[in-house]
Amino acid sequence: MGRYVGKRLLSAIPVLFIVGIIAFVLSHLSGGDPARVVAGNDATQAQVEAIRQQMGLNQSLPIQLWQWMINIFHGNLGYSYILGEQVTPTILSHIFPTLSVALFGEAISLVVAIPLGVLAADKHRRIADKIVLAFATLTTSLPSFLAGLLLMIVFVLQLKLLPASGFVDPNEDFAGYFSHLILPGVSVATLQIAIISRMTRSSMIDALGSDYMRTASAKGLTRSRQLWVHAFKNSSIPILTIIGQSFGELIAGAIVVETVFDVPGIGQLVVNSILRRDYQMIQGIMIFVALVFIIVNLITDVLYAVVDPRIRERSF
Protein backbone atom coordinates (compact mmCIF):
# COMPACT_ATOMS: atom_id res chain seq x y z
CA MET A 1 0.00 0.00 0.00
CA GLY A 2 2.89 2.38 0.77
CA ARG A 3 4.32 2.00 -2.74
CA TYR A 4 0.87 2.51 -4.23
CA VAL A 5 0.35 5.78 -2.32
CA GLY A 6 3.90 6.90 -3.16
CA LYS A 7 3.33 6.45 -6.88
CA ARG A 8 0.11 8.45 -6.69
CA LEU A 9 1.88 11.27 -4.83
CA LEU A 10 4.66 11.41 -7.42
CA SER A 11 2.12 11.58 -10.24
CA ALA A 12 0.54 14.61 -8.54
CA ILE A 13 3.72 16.73 -8.75
CA PRO A 14 3.41 17.50 -12.51
CA VAL A 15 -0.26 18.42 -12.00
CA LEU A 16 0.65 20.87 -9.25
CA PHE A 17 3.42 22.32 -11.43
CA ILE A 18 1.06 22.88 -14.39
CA VAL A 19 -1.60 24.45 -12.17
CA GLY A 20 1.04 26.76 -10.73
CA ILE A 21 2.04 27.94 -14.21
CA ILE A 22 -1.59 28.52 -15.19
CA ALA A 23 -2.31 30.45 -11.98
CA PHE A 24 0.78 32.61 -12.47
CA VAL A 25 0.03 33.36 -16.14
CA LEU A 26 -3.65 34.15 -15.53
CA SER A 27 -2.84 36.53 -12.69
CA HIS A 28 -0.38 38.43 -14.92
CA LEU A 29 -2.84 38.56 -17.82
CA SER A 30 -5.61 39.99 -15.66
CA GLY A 31 -4.36 43.55 -16.12
CA GLY A 32 -3.48 46.23 -13.63
CA ASP A 33 -0.32 46.96 -11.72
CA PRO A 34 -0.06 45.16 -8.37
CA ALA A 35 2.52 47.67 -7.18
CA ARG A 36 0.19 50.57 -7.97
CA VAL A 37 -2.64 48.80 -6.10
CA VAL A 38 -0.43 48.37 -3.02
CA ALA A 39 0.92 51.92 -3.17
CA GLY A 40 -2.44 53.57 -3.73
CA ASN A 41 -3.59 56.14 -6.26
CA ASP A 42 -1.84 59.02 -4.50
CA ALA A 43 1.62 57.41 -4.55
CA THR A 44 4.38 58.90 -6.66
CA GLN A 45 6.03 56.97 -9.46
CA ALA A 46 9.17 56.62 -7.35
CA GLN A 47 7.17 55.04 -4.53
CA VAL A 48 5.49 52.66 -6.99
CA GLU A 49 8.87 51.62 -8.41
CA ALA A 50 10.21 51.00 -4.90
CA ILE A 51 7.25 48.75 -4.11
CA ARG A 52 7.62 46.98 -7.46
CA GLN A 53 11.24 46.20 -6.61
CA GLN A 54 10.25 45.01 -3.12
CA MET A 55 7.65 42.67 -4.65
CA GLY A 56 10.15 41.38 -7.20
CA LEU A 57 8.10 42.66 -10.12
CA ASN A 58 11.13 44.34 -11.68
CA GLN A 59 12.51 40.89 -12.58
CA SER A 60 11.59 39.03 -15.75
CA LEU A 61 8.46 36.86 -15.71
CA PRO A 62 10.39 33.54 -16.04
CA ILE A 63 12.49 34.44 -12.99
CA GLN A 64 9.38 35.48 -11.03
CA LEU A 65 7.68 32.22 -11.99
CA TRP A 66 10.71 30.12 -11.04
CA GLN A 67 11.09 31.76 -7.63
CA TRP A 68 7.35 31.40 -6.96
CA MET A 69 7.38 27.70 -7.89
CA ILE A 70 10.40 27.10 -5.63
CA ASN A 71 8.54 28.76 -2.76
CA ILE A 72 5.44 26.63 -3.44
CA PHE A 73 7.37 23.38 -3.10
CA HIS A 74 8.71 24.70 0.20
CA GLY A 75 5.16 25.28 1.43
CA ASN A 76 5.28 29.04 0.95
CA LEU A 77 2.41 30.34 -1.22
CA GLY A 78 3.70 33.90 -1.19
CA TYR A 79 3.12 37.16 0.64
CA SER A 80 0.05 39.38 0.33
CA TYR A 81 1.24 42.97 0.23
CA ILE A 82 -2.39 44.11 0.31
CA LEU A 83 -3.06 42.44 3.67
CA GLY A 84 0.54 42.58 4.87
CA GLU A 85 0.66 38.89 5.80
CA GLN A 86 1.69 35.48 4.46
CA VAL A 87 -0.74 33.81 2.07
CA THR A 88 -0.56 30.29 3.55
CA PRO A 89 -1.74 31.10 7.11
CA THR A 90 -4.44 33.39 5.72
CA ILE A 91 -5.84 30.58 3.57
CA LEU A 92 -5.61 28.11 6.44
CA SER A 93 -7.56 30.51 8.67
CA HIS A 94 -10.40 30.49 6.12
CA ILE A 95 -10.35 26.81 5.16
CA PHE A 96 -12.18 25.41 8.21
CA PRO A 97 -15.58 27.01 7.41
CA THR A 98 -15.32 25.89 3.77
CA LEU A 99 -14.40 22.32 4.70
CA SER A 100 -17.16 22.28 7.31
CA VAL A 101 -19.77 23.20 4.69
CA ALA A 102 -18.31 20.84 2.07
CA LEU A 103 -17.97 17.81 4.36
CA PHE A 104 -21.39 18.36 5.92
CA GLY A 105 -22.86 18.61 2.42
CA GLU A 106 -21.01 15.45 1.38
CA ALA A 107 -22.35 13.59 4.41
CA ILE A 108 -25.90 14.67 3.59
CA SER A 109 -25.56 13.66 -0.06
CA LEU A 110 -24.18 10.20 0.78
CA VAL A 111 -26.82 9.49 3.42
CA VAL A 112 -29.60 10.48 1.02
CA ALA A 113 -28.26 9.56 -2.44
CA ILE A 114 -26.94 6.03 -1.88
CA PRO A 115 -30.14 4.61 -0.32
CA LEU A 116 -32.17 6.36 -3.05
CA GLY A 117 -29.98 4.84 -5.75
CA VAL A 118 -30.21 1.37 -4.23
CA LEU A 119 -33.99 1.71 -3.88
CA ALA A 120 -34.35 2.87 -7.49
CA ALA A 121 -32.28 -0.08 -8.75
CA ASP A 122 -34.22 -2.57 -6.64
CA LYS A 123 -37.52 -1.12 -7.93
CA HIS A 124 -36.28 -0.70 -11.49
CA ARG A 125 -38.98 0.67 -13.85
CA ARG A 126 -41.50 0.85 -11.04
CA ILE A 127 -43.04 3.92 -9.44
CA ALA A 128 -40.28 4.27 -6.81
CA ASP A 129 -37.62 4.27 -9.55
CA LYS A 130 -39.47 6.97 -11.48
CA ILE A 131 -39.84 9.14 -8.37
CA VAL A 132 -36.10 8.90 -7.64
CA LEU A 133 -35.24 9.80 -11.24
CA ALA A 134 -37.64 12.76 -11.15
CA PHE A 135 -36.10 13.95 -7.87
CA ALA A 136 -32.59 13.61 -9.34
CA THR A 137 -33.61 15.59 -12.42
CA LEU A 138 -35.07 18.34 -10.24
CA THR A 139 -31.95 18.67 -8.06
CA THR A 140 -29.66 18.57 -11.11
CA SER A 141 -31.39 21.63 -12.56
CA LEU A 142 -31.18 23.53 -9.26
CA PRO A 143 -27.90 25.48 -8.77
CA SER A 144 -26.52 25.47 -5.25
CA PHE A 145 -26.86 29.23 -4.78
CA LEU A 146 -30.51 29.13 -5.91
CA ALA A 147 -31.17 26.19 -3.59
CA GLY A 148 -29.65 28.25 -0.80
CA LEU A 149 -31.93 31.21 -1.50
CA LEU A 150 -35.02 28.97 -1.61
CA LEU A 151 -34.06 27.27 1.65
CA MET A 152 -33.44 30.64 3.24
CA ILE A 153 -36.92 31.84 2.24
CA VAL A 154 -38.58 28.73 3.70
CA PHE A 155 -36.58 27.99 6.85
CA VAL A 156 -35.48 31.51 7.79
CA LEU A 157 -38.13 33.94 6.60
CA GLN A 158 -41.21 31.71 6.78
CA LEU A 159 -40.57 29.09 9.48
CA LYS A 160 -37.87 31.02 11.39
CA LEU A 161 -36.17 27.76 12.38
CA LEU A 162 -32.57 28.34 11.31
CA PRO A 163 -30.09 31.23 11.23
CA ALA A 164 -29.84 33.10 7.94
CA SER A 165 -26.09 33.61 7.79
CA GLY A 166 -22.78 33.54 9.58
CA PHE A 167 -20.53 30.92 11.13
CA VAL A 168 -19.94 29.86 14.73
CA ASP A 169 -16.78 28.34 16.15
CA PRO A 170 -17.62 24.78 17.33
CA ASN A 171 -15.35 25.23 20.36
CA GLU A 172 -17.54 28.11 21.52
CA ASP A 173 -21.00 26.79 20.66
CA PHE A 174 -21.32 23.42 18.92
CA ALA A 175 -25.11 23.63 18.64
CA GLY A 176 -24.78 27.02 16.97
CA TYR A 177 -22.02 25.68 14.71
CA PHE A 178 -24.26 22.81 13.59
CA SER A 179 -27.35 24.99 13.06
CA HIS A 180 -25.36 27.42 10.89
CA LEU A 181 -24.14 24.53 8.71
CA ILE A 182 -27.54 23.01 7.90
CA LEU A 183 -28.73 25.41 5.18
CA PRO A 184 -25.40 25.83 3.33
CA GLY A 185 -24.71 22.10 3.68
CA VAL A 186 -28.08 21.13 2.19
CA SER A 187 -27.59 23.73 -0.56
CA VAL A 188 -24.31 22.23 -1.78
CA ALA A 189 -25.67 18.68 -1.36
CA THR A 190 -28.52 19.07 -3.87
CA LEU A 191 -26.44 18.52 -7.00
CA GLN A 192 -24.38 15.80 -5.30
CA ILE A 193 -27.53 13.86 -4.42
CA ALA A 194 -28.59 13.81 -8.07
CA ILE A 195 -25.18 12.72 -9.38
CA ILE A 196 -24.49 10.03 -6.78
CA SER A 197 -28.02 8.59 -6.77
CA ARG A 198 -27.99 8.20 -10.55
CA MET A 199 -24.60 6.51 -10.58
CA THR A 200 -25.60 4.23 -7.69
CA ARG A 201 -28.79 3.28 -9.52
CA SER A 202 -26.96 2.57 -12.79
CA SER A 203 -24.22 0.49 -11.13
CA MET A 204 -26.66 -1.44 -8.98
CA ILE A 205 -28.88 -2.30 -11.97
CA ASP A 206 -25.88 -3.85 -13.70
CA ALA A 207 -24.92 -5.75 -10.55
CA LEU A 208 -28.44 -7.03 -9.87
CA GLY A 209 -28.58 -8.63 -13.32
CA SER A 210 -25.35 -10.60 -12.84
CA ASP A 211 -24.98 -14.35 -12.30
CA TYR A 212 -23.67 -14.08 -8.74
CA MET A 213 -26.84 -12.24 -7.69
CA ARG A 214 -28.98 -15.06 -9.05
CA THR A 215 -26.80 -17.45 -7.07
CA ALA A 216 -27.25 -15.35 -3.92
CA SER A 217 -31.02 -15.40 -4.45
CA ALA A 218 -31.01 -19.16 -4.99
CA LYS A 219 -29.17 -19.60 -1.67
CA GLY A 220 -32.09 -17.94 0.11
CA LEU A 221 -30.28 -14.78 1.24
CA THR A 222 -32.49 -11.94 2.37
CA ARG A 223 -33.10 -9.15 -0.13
CA SER A 224 -31.34 -6.67 2.12
CA ARG A 225 -28.21 -8.85 2.25
CA GLN A 226 -28.30 -9.34 -1.50
CA LEU A 227 -28.48 -5.62 -2.10
CA TRP A 228 -25.99 -4.26 0.43
CA VAL A 229 -23.48 -7.08 0.92
CA HIS A 230 -23.20 -8.45 -2.61
CA ALA A 231 -24.58 -6.00 -5.19
CA PHE A 232 -23.49 -2.76 -3.53
CA LYS A 233 -19.97 -3.98 -2.77
CA ASN A 234 -19.44 -4.99 -6.39
CA SER A 235 -20.88 -1.66 -7.56
CA SER A 236 -18.71 0.47 -5.29
CA ILE A 237 -15.86 1.29 -7.73
CA PRO A 238 -17.91 3.49 -10.10
CA ILE A 239 -19.73 4.98 -7.10
CA LEU A 240 -16.41 5.89 -5.46
CA THR A 241 -15.27 7.37 -8.76
CA ILE A 242 -18.24 9.70 -9.07
CA ILE A 243 -18.01 10.68 -5.40
CA GLY A 244 -14.35 11.63 -5.80
CA GLN A 245 -14.94 13.53 -9.03
CA SER A 246 -18.01 15.37 -7.79
CA PHE A 247 -16.38 16.36 -4.49
CA GLY A 248 -14.44 18.97 -6.43
CA GLU A 249 -17.73 20.39 -7.68
CA LEU A 250 -18.99 20.32 -4.11
CA ILE A 251 -15.99 22.42 -2.98
CA ALA A 252 -16.73 24.88 -5.78
CA GLY A 253 -20.39 24.93 -4.75
CA ALA A 254 -19.42 25.55 -1.14
CA ILE A 255 -17.33 28.55 -2.20
CA VAL A 256 -20.34 30.04 -4.03
CA VAL A 257 -22.82 29.23 -1.25
CA GLU A 258 -20.54 30.92 1.30
CA THR A 259 -21.35 34.23 -0.37
CA VAL A 260 -25.09 33.60 -0.01
CA PHE A 261 -24.87 32.66 3.68
CA ASP A 262 -21.98 35.00 4.57
CA VAL A 263 -19.72 32.18 5.69
CA PRO A 264 -16.14 33.45 6.28
CA GLY A 265 -14.46 30.75 4.22
CA ILE A 266 -12.37 30.48 1.07
CA GLY A 267 -15.23 31.84 -1.07
CA GLN A 268 -15.35 35.09 0.86
CA LEU A 269 -11.56 35.32 0.70
CA VAL A 270 -11.63 34.80 -3.10
CA VAL A 271 -14.24 37.52 -3.63
CA ASN A 272 -12.42 40.00 -1.41
CA SER A 273 -9.06 39.20 -3.03
CA ILE A 274 -10.49 39.82 -6.51
CA LEU A 275 -12.02 43.12 -5.42
CA ARG A 276 -8.69 44.16 -3.84
CA ARG A 277 -6.70 42.84 -6.83
CA ASP A 278 -4.62 40.82 -4.41
CA TYR A 279 -2.88 38.73 -7.07
CA GLN A 280 -0.59 36.90 -4.64
CA MET A 281 -3.58 35.71 -2.62
CA ILE A 282 -5.51 34.65 -5.74
CA GLN A 283 -2.52 32.63 -6.98
CA GLY A 284 -2.16 30.98 -3.60
CA ILE A 285 -5.84 30.08 -3.43
CA MET A 286 -5.70 28.48 -6.89
CA ILE A 287 -2.74 26.34 -5.82
CA PHE A 288 -4.41 25.42 -2.53
CA VAL A 289 -7.67 24.38 -4.24
CA ALA A 290 -5.67 22.29 -6.73
CA LEU A 291 -3.91 20.62 -3.79
CA VAL A 292 -7.29 19.79 -2.23
CA PHE A 293 -8.37 18.17 -5.51
CA ILE A 294 -5.16 16.13 -5.59
CA ILE A 295 -5.70 14.94 -2.02
CA VAL A 296 -9.31 13.96 -2.78
CA ASN A 297 -8.19 11.99 -5.85
CA LEU A 298 -5.47 10.30 -3.79
CA ILE A 299 -8.02 9.27 -1.15
CA THR A 300 -10.27 7.94 -3.92
CA ASP A 301 -7.40 5.89 -5.40
CA VAL A 302 -6.58 4.45 -1.97
CA LEU A 303 -10.22 3.49 -1.47
CA TYR A 304 -10.11 1.73 -4.86
CA ALA A 305 -7.24 -0.38 -3.60
CA VAL A 306 -9.04 -1.13 -0.34
CA VAL A 307 -12.25 -2.20 -2.06
CA ASP A 308 -10.51 -4.14 -4.83
CA PRO A 309 -6.93 -5.30 -4.02
CA ARG A 310 -6.45 -6.28 -7.67
CA ILE A 311 -6.14 -2.57 -8.52
CA ARG A 312 -3.22 -2.22 -6.12
CA GLU A 313 -1.53 -5.30 -7.52
CA ARG A 314 -1.89 -4.10 -11.14
CA SER A 315 -0.28 -0.76 -10.27
CA PHE A 316 3.03 -2.39 -9.28
Rank of each mutant, 00 (worst) to 15 (best):
W68Q: 03
S315W: 14
F104S: 02
H28C: 02
L269H: 04
E313N: 02
A50M: 11
G265H: 01
R312G: 13
M286S: 12
P184R: 05
L303A: 06
R310S: 10
R52W: 14
G78C: 08
L16H: 11
V101A: 01
L151H: 04
I18F: 14
I21L: 15
M286W: 10
F145H: 03
T259Y: 09
L150E: 04
L16G: 10
A43Y: 10
I294D: 06
M204H: 04
F145D: 02
L146W: 14
P115A: 08
I196C: 09
I274V: 15
A120Q: 11
G176Y: 02
V101I: 11
A231I: 06
A194V: 12
A113C: 01
F316Q: 11
F135S: 08
A136C: 08
R277F: 03
I311T: 10
V112L: 09
Q192I: 06
N297G: 06
R223K: 13
G244T: 10
V302Y: 06
S11I: 15
S187C: 06
P97T: 05
Q45M: 09
G176Q: 04
A113I: 00
L150D: 03
I243G: 00
I242W: 08
A252Q: 09
V25F: 08
W228M: 08
M213E: 09
V260W: 11
Q53S: 13
G75W: 13
I242T: 15
K219S: 12
A147D: 07
L142K: 02
V256C: 11
A46P: 09
D169A: 09
Q64S: 07
G176C: 04
Y177L: 01
I243P: 00
V168H: 00
H124N: 15
A305T: 07
I251N: 03
S165H: 07
